[in-house]
Amino acid sequence: MSRVLAAAGAEFRIALRNRWVTIAVAMMALFAAVLSAAGSAPTGQLGADKLSVTVASLTSLAVYLVPLIALLMSFDAIAGEVERGTLPLILTYPVARWQLLAGKFLAHLGILALSVVVGYGIAAAAAFWFDPRAGAGLAALFRLTWTSLLLGAAFLGIGYAISAFARRPGAAAGLVIGLWLVLIVLYDLGLLAAVVADAGGTFTRAVFPWLLLANPADAFRLYNLAASEATAVAAGIGGAAGAIPPARALASLVLWAVAAFAFGVAAFRRVTP
């Protein structure tokens, strides 16, 4: 454990010096602030408190931003060490590869937690400013925070696997951006197109829910929107997926977080320095 913590400490320091901490926190804070400003106008009384509404829009924001930040932090984790030539030396130390990766993971997750807490904190503060009843949305905000970390964990693991697979930071960067586009943007568009073309057929009823669950970003959105009272406000793809039980979405998210890290370790094990 002390080796994991040592690796985490070094990684966090490096991220701090490389301004990664600043960039991640600033990115989340900026988007949350913009989102609060845009949502500060009265949205027509829907009955929901301001914070619940904010959480719903934060969810849509997190689906894009959290995976992006996670991938941007993780793509360099192994490829960068290979490129700098620091990998052979550390691999002769009495430390397991999973311990090294766990250290990086802890540091990256910590940075993500920091940026998420700052970003959501800003949005929550704005909600409380405009609506004294905002306390009702605190549970949803809490849920959004820890599921964001699960989502981030899943994409960190995926990023490590890509980093180990690509061996070169440039190639790894290209791959993670491509993956982000596919999983976060194109995936939903594709599903939507398929659902429309299918017009309520067997695909929509039998296959579509599973495809939603299979994507960690969709599982994240499903869980938060289904559990939130403001589902209707930010429907998006949620309407068609109303039938999926939230527990399944959560299970998918947890599974992804665990499996992605295991996948990252497995890919790292195959790297010969």
Binding site: S2, R3, A6, A7, G9, A10, R13, I14, R17, N18, R84, G85, T86, P88, L89, I90, Y93, P94, V95
Partner: peptide, 23 residues
């Protein structure tokens, strides 16, 4: 190693403390 490399962002002390803890 030949052409030994370290992370340029760390100080000598930080890097050595890291290796010490790894051992």
């Amino acid at each position: 190693p030949e052409n030994v490399a370290f992370h340029p962002a760390l100080t000598g002390r930080e890097q050595l403390r890291f290796y010490l803890r790894m051992k």
